[in-house]
Amino acid sequence: MQNDEAKALQLCFSCVITLVIAAAVVIASFAYLPLGPGRLFSREAGGEMLEFFLSFFPPDLSAGHVRKTAWAAVETLAVSAVGTLLAAVGGLLLCLPASGRYGWAPRALARGLLNLLRSVPELVWAALMVLAAGLGPFAGVLALGLHTTGVLGRLFAEALENTPKEPAAALLGVGASPALAFVYGTLPGVAPQLLAYTLYRWEMNIRMAAILGFVGAGGLGQMLYYELSLFHQAQAATVIGAMLLLSVAVDAASAVARRGLARAYA
């Protein structure tokens, strides 16, 4: 009993310490940044915010600008599609060694490579690829492809490890080549999972592709960065609107696709 009470007290003590530290960090941050809470929430600041917000309206809906924005949206969509496709292929290739099919050494090597690809964020990859491949959508494709390969390869490898090995082993027993035993024995079990992971990452990559342009990797992001740097708020508003529309459309499309997949695999 006494032990329990002592534990409860200890727990409470640690809550208090956490709260004190959190409060200290917030106060220290305000002090460190030249930004007083008084100024942030003052009437003056509110007026400035409203003014800034209103400067985006009305958006530039002239035919020429809308057409330009639409093309940039298509470019964003294309960058995400090609990047995800490359990642699916790369992930499929790397998941084979990463799932331990060829022994522990290739498994460790492949896992290490996947970890490296995954732990560098898309934006960092994009900045690197802009340096390597030049400005434009190709850098975006490479950036998405590299990061997503790391994510998908890891997910695919886990799906493979959790699928029964007997069907493929039985096919090796009738003299099938390892590749065919994989296609006939293992793939039917994991294909729906692989497809679902890929579609999910594509959905995320469409949103990410819209942002990648900020470091020069094409699409809506690059356009937004360009307009904002020139203080063309009205034009930027159109681009932001296109990003919102794209996001909503992707959500709706993926909901439909999910329902279709659920039916096909029920």
């Binding site: 029964p164 007997e166 069907p167 082993a169 039985a170 027993g173 009738v174 003299g175 006939y184 024995g185 293992t186 039917p188 079990g189 294909a191 729906p192 695999y265």
Partner: peptide
């Protein structure tokens, strides 16, 4: 040239 009938046939569920 060898055919094996398994007690629990190892067939993928979705095949």
């Amino acid at each position: 040239r060898i055919g094996t009938v398994h007690q629990a046939p190892p067939l993928p569920a979705r095949q």
